[in-house]
Amino acid sequence: MSAAKTKAEQIINDNSVAVFSKSYCPYCKATKALLNEMGAKYYAIELDQVDDGAAIQDALQQISGQRSVPNIYIKKQHIGGNSDLQAKKGDLPTLLKDAGAL
């Protein structure tokens, strides 16, 4: 298994909410704004600001089938991207509470 895949899986496993993001991405910003608005504790990694970002992005495709960012996990479950998260807005407080992120 690649080091990037191990790192990605460790981030997903170690954080109740994990957001794989890029600092300049408007959809990533919308995702983090929604989580901040909800008062969620989450871990975000900016793939454009880490040396192995491209490799992590490739690994995410192997893990979830999604390569695009934001790539969001709550309680180790792949949620999808920003539009998927926004669509779950009504369920989000419960999801975040169950994950221990509120």
Rank of each mutant, 00 (worst) to 15 (best):
A55R: 01
K5R: 15
S83M: 12
K5A: 12
E37L: 12
E9Q: 15
M38A: 14
S64G: 05
G39F: 04
A40P: 03
S64F: 11
N15F: 08
K41A: 10
Y24M: 04
L95R: 03
S23D: 05
A8P: 11
I56H: 02
S64V: 03
A4P: 05
P70I: 03
G80I: 09
A40L: 05
I74C: 00
V17F: 12
E46D: 15
A8D: 09
E37N: 12
I72L: 11
S23G: 03
E9W: 04
E9Y: 05
A33S: 14
A44S: 15
M38S: 05
L85H: 07
V19P: 10
N15H: 15
A87I: 01
D91S: 10
N15Q: 03
D98E: 15
S21M: 00
I72D: 04
G80V: 06
H78S: 10
I79E: 00
Q49Y: 01
K89R: 15
R67D: 08
G90I: 02
S83C: 01
N13Y: 05
E37A: 02
K22R: 14
K7E: 15
I56L: 10
T94N: 14
A99F: 07
D84A: 13
N15G: 02
K97V: 04
D51R: 06
K22T: 08
C25P: 03
Y43M: 13
T31V: 02
L95K: 09
H78L: 08
G65L: 11
I63M: 05
K32G: 00
L92H: 13
A3F: 09
T94M: 11
K32P: 01
A18F: 13
I79A: 03
S83W: 01
S16V: 03
A4M: 12
I11T: 10
I63K: 13
L34H: 11
C25R: 08
H78V: 07
G100A: 06
Q10W: 11
G81Q: 05
Q57H: 09
S16G: 08
V50L: 10
Y42N: 01
D52L: 09
E37V: 00
M1F: 10
Q86F: 02
D51G: 12
A55N: 09
D58L: 04
T94K: 15
D51V: 14
G53Y: 06
G53S: 03
E9P: 00
A87C: 07
Q10P: 01
S21Y: 02
E9D: 14
P70L: 03
A18R: 04
K76L: 06
C28F: 02
Q57N: 06
E46N: 11
L35F: 01
K5W: 12
A59Y: 10
R67N: 07
G80S: 07
Y73T: 03
L47W: 05
K76S: 13
K89S: 15
I72H: 02
I74R: 00
A8L: 12
Q66H: 07
P93V: 05
I72S: 08
M1K: 08
K29H: 12
A87Y: 12
A4D: 05
V17L: 11
